[in-house]
Amino acid sequence: MTTKQIAELANVSRSTVSRVINNYENVPIETKKKVQKIIDEYGYTPNYFARTLAGKNPNIIGIFLADINTTFSSNDWIGINSPYNMELISVIVNLLKSYNHVALVNIITDIKELKNLEHYFLKRIVAGGIFAGFPYNISELEELARKYNIVLIDQMISNDGNDNLKLVNSDNNSGGYIATKYLIDKGHTNILHIAGDNRLSSIQRERGYKTAMKEFNLEPNIIYGMYREDIAYKITKNYVPIHKPSAIFAGNDIMAIGVIKALKELMFRIPEDISVMGFDNLNLTKWFNLDITTMSVSIKDIGENSVKLLFEEKDNYSICRANLIERSSVAEKMK
């Protein structure tokens, strides 16, 4: 018996069933009696961790961020210092307030640390967890998420077909395709893609780029910037003077910033000489008036969907759309 089945039998919403289970006061007495009668008749027992989340003790949600620098880069914009992660944390923390919960932020610097995180859940230090920024297909992470009330951002269901993981993803494959096709439609054929790292978002954005390039019989050019501004800067400095692409599609806005910095130092005009496309639509680019054409995936939506999956019994999978944001860093290719 699930809350969905109870809701269908009682002819009420699943949120109403949840409020009855958690003894909220804003439920009409007759509705409460009807739902409780079905719960009693079918012997429904709420999931332990779902009940924990609904209560007051503990009222802490863990936010676990990966800060695993496999490049030995000196860049400061990684892990907790990443503008993307800071925006995401801000969204999640504010949303947790509406559920009377607070956040405990933990930085994971090595995959081996995942094995030591179980005590947070066993000892009820946290009532649930949100994990973000981790490499794709980490078995230790999946194992932890199957046992406890955990939401994984930017991960995919494993090959064994187990679909009980709570996942929030972006439509990165479509976003990569749309970004690349937009550049092609502007007349660009020599398009460099500075891809990310071993995270699912990078893999899918690269796949979208390849699909668009293949569709128009164009040769893909891919170099991995590891989602780092300084690495994208070095790639641009070394690659552009020799190969002279007319457009660069950076796998995220952070790398696009490195690309723009390098192009300006090389005395290339943007977009007259080289067009630049980013991904993520970070507030940071607007604060510095960089005016980067980019793909926007709402960080607010990612945060909201993650929190909802923790507190509400609903579909375990959520995907956030990617939308093109046209600004001044892309132009028609000069003939």
Score class of each variant (00 low, 15 high):
Lys214Glu: 15
Asn198Lys: 07
Ile21Ser: 03
Lys286His: 13
Ile178Arg: 06
Asn69Phe: 11
Tyr44Pro: 11
Leu96Ala: 10
Val151Phe: 01
Leu183Cys: 07
Ile125Pro: 00
Ile125Asn: 06
Leu309Trp: 10
Lys115Phe: 05
Asp253Lys: 03
Gln36Val: 11
Phe216Cys: 10
Glu118Asp: 14
Val240Tyr: 02
Asn164Trp: 00
Ser298Asp: 02
Pro271His: 01
Gly225Asn: 08
Ile153Ser: 04
Leu165Gly: 07
Ser139His: 11
Thr52Leu: 14
Met156Trp: 00
Ile184Ser: 13
Ser90Tyr: 15
Asn221Cys: 08
Glu272Arg: 07
Thr31Asp: 12
Gly187Glu: 10
Tyr239Leu: 10
Lys210Met: 13
Ile29Arg: 09
Ile231Ser: 09
Tyr148Gln: 07
Tyr148Phe: 15
Ala132Cys: 13
Val35Phe: 12
Pro58Ile: 08
Ile6Leu: 11
Leu96Ile: 12
Ile38Glu: 08
Asn173Lys: 15
Asn75Lys: 04
Leu324Gln: 05
Thr45Ala: 03
Glu142Gly: 02
Glu229Cys: 12
His243Ile: 13
Gln155His: 00
Met267Phe: 10
Asn305Arg: 14
Lys37Arg: 14
Ile231Val: 15
Asn26Gly: 06
Ile260Arg: 10
Ala132Asn: 14
Thr211Trp: 01
Ser13Gln: 08
Ile107Pro: 00
Leu95Ile: 14
Asp160Gln: 00
Ser174Thr: 13
Asn289Arg: 10
Ser158Asn: 01
Ile80Leu: 15
Arg207Leu: 14
Gly176Gln: 04
Leu104Arg: 10
Ile191His: 02
Lys186Cys: 13
Leu144Met: 02
Ala10Arg: 05
Gly129Cys: 09
Phe49Ile: 04
Asn281Met: 03
Met255Leu: 09
Tyr99Lys: 14
Phe279Pro: 12
Glu313Ser: 10
Gly175Ser: 10
